[in-house]
């Protein structure tokens, strides 16, 4: 038994080393002064980071990426929230259609999507190929599956349909029941898929390169351009960029973890199970009348 555990330790150890070597290597490279024939760097320096944070181009690229992310994720939340809510609650017969439209981008790689987008927007009435606007549209579609699943599952966990029924029975308007009953309960669920989308768009390169390229330099385009210049500086960019991604996914993990163990949520669940019971009773009463 003990020898088999050693076996598993070796496997997992090798795996962790394989997965971490590129990351650790890049990190060391970004703080290394002289490093060409030893296992560890001979000297360390922060020069590369100082150089990076004095680079206007880096800030500009970062700002552009941020602009794209805020626009597309913001648009996605503003559009998808009412859409999914309305379809789930009032037009449930179209749910299949919505799901198909929302999940389709998952199966289409950006490289294929870009071919069609270039075709549609390089001539014709709307010529936005080569501008950031086409990227916002493309990114809206890219994050669609994540936003859809996040919002849909939060609506399902709070039993939105029954909640709205109850609110409307008590005299609330449709907008009121959405704003005061449903919305506060799904914020955290939306937050998770929003952050995931942000992380996803941060590392998006294919659309940015194919649709706009150097005309609107995002952080990824900037990185790709720097690939062939100073390795140390590029490592500093990679590490800075990757720390941001880690921070984002870390928050996501924390949020999902907290939601599962939050007593407030379990309270909410209790209320909802009560609703459910009521709903069942109503059903059985109707069946009894027949």
């Amino acid at each position: 038994m003990k020898s088999s555990l050693t076996f598993h330790k070796v496997i997992v150890g090798l795996l962790v080393i394989y997965l971490l070597i590129p990351l650790v290597g890049t990190f060391l490279f970004s703080i290394a002064g002289k490093w060409d024939h030893t296992i560890l760097p001979e000297s360390y320096t922060m020069d590369w980071y100082i150089e990076l944070f004095q680079d206007e181009r880096f800030y500009d690229a970062f700002r552009r990426t941020l602009f794209l992310i805020v626009m597309s994720v913001g648009l996605s939340v503003v559009i998808m929230l009412p859409t999914i809510f309305i379809i789930t609650v009032y037009f449930s017969k179209w749910e299949g259609l919505l799901q198909a439209a929302a999940m389709l981008p998952y199966g289409i790689p950006p490289i294929v999507g870009a071919v069609g987008l270039i075709k549609v927007y390089s001539d014709g009435p709307i010529q936005i190929a080569g501008t950031p606007w086409i990227l916002i549209g493309a990114y809206f579609i890219t994050i669609l599956p994540f936003m859809y699943q996040g919002i849909r599952s939060s609506l399902r966990t709070i039993n939105a349909v029954q909640l709205v029924d109850a609110a409307e029975l008590l005299g609330a308007t449709k907008f009121q029941s959405f704003r005061t009953v449903v919305f506060p309960n799904i914020i955290s669920g939306i937050l998770v898929s929003t952050l995931l989308s942000v992380a996803l768009l941060f590392s998006e390169f294919a659309f940015a390169n194919l649709l706009v390229g150097g005309r609107f330099e995002t952080i990824q385009i900037y990185l790709a351009d720097k690939l062939n210049s100073s390795g140390h500086l590029t490592s500093a960019i990679v590490i800075t960029y990757y720390s941001m991604i880690l921070l984002l996914t870390g928050i996501v993990l924390k949020l999902t973890f907290r939601n599962e163990k939050n007593p407030v949520v379990s309270n909410k669940k209790r209320i909802l199970s009560f609703f459910k019971k009521q709903h069942c009773n109503k059903n059985t009463a109707i069946e009894g009348e027949k």
């Binding site: 962790v16 997965l19 971490l20 070597i21 590129p22 990351l23 290597g25 890049t26 490279f29 490093w35 060409d36 992380a199 590392s203 390169f205 990824q220 990185l223 790709a224 690939l227 390795g231 590029t234 490592s235 990679v238 960029y241 990757y242 991604i245 880690l246 996914t249 993990l253």
Partner: peptide
């Protein structure tokens, strides 16, 4: 968590990382 972390390390940064480790002048 390590798997989750490294799954985010892809695309341009990943290629770059392999280039500085195993490229022509890689470590």
């Amino acid at each position: 968590m390590i798997a989750n972390m490294t799954s985010n390390f892809e695309g341009i940064p990943l290629s770059f990382s392999f280039i500085i480790l195993l490229g022509n002048n890689g470590l």
